[in-house]
Design a protein around this nucleic acid. Sequence first.
DNA 1: CCGTATCCTATAAGATACTG
DNA 2: CAGTATCTTATAGGATACGG
Lengths: 122, 122
Amino acid sequence: MTTLNRPDTPDAHICGIDTVMEVIGGKWKVLILWALETQPRRRFGELRRLVPGITEKVLASHLREMEADGIVRRVAYDEVPPRVEYSLTEDGARLNDALEPLAVWGRGRPAGRRAPSPPPTV
Amino acid sequence: MTTLNRPDTPDAHICGIDTVMEVIGGKWKVLILWALETQPRRRFGELRRLVPGITEKVLASHLREMEADGIVRRVAYDEVPPRVEYSLTEDGARLNDALEPLAVWGRGRPAGRRAPSPPPTV
DNA sequence: CCGTATCCTATAAGATACTG
DNA sequence: CAGTATCTTATAGGATACGG
């Protein structure tokens, strides 16, 4: 992990931030997070529909990582046909809350950025 | 961009979040952000030292993207030897603030996660 | 000092097919 | 239904060298 230890950089700050980035770094993880927030429990197929574009393989692997990270709980019922339900853990719910200010920031911008911007040489 | 439009998913929420993820998605961007927060202006070489492990190429490209995204301002002084100063824009500063709750969440966990967790089949 | 220019590789993720 | 198993590809990022 990238752990800094310099007088200039607020380490605790940083330390926290990059562990978070590892946890939500997957391409679809925040989307899965929100999908899990809108209802207490979600089934695999539901999630696939709620996150359009994701493949089964990636959904499955993301879910396994999120489970390992303790933000998602997976309960498999031994029935036929099989039923599996995913839900947020307490930690996952708090993570979701912590994402809110970021979402607000994102909404507050002119949609399409990444302009070349004039080269200001002084 | 992954823009959802389903009754179940809080689109505005999501929309905001994934634009943010595009902006801070680079491997070192949040670190650069913090390094820029701790002082009003930073030179290229300073940043390289403050973000140990990053290569010049990646630092340069990250900075250019962040500039294009409007969160970093670059000012090049026409001197010799060259001097270039990077700083946060207002938008960048607000982004940094919005990252704080996430950092708090990250700090509040038992450091090394990603445990295999016992398979709970009901 | 502040970067580019090349070249290279590892990994995430997509496509597709198949199974308990 | 809820996944695995393969295979392939794109891209981010790393290593290194050089330039204004």
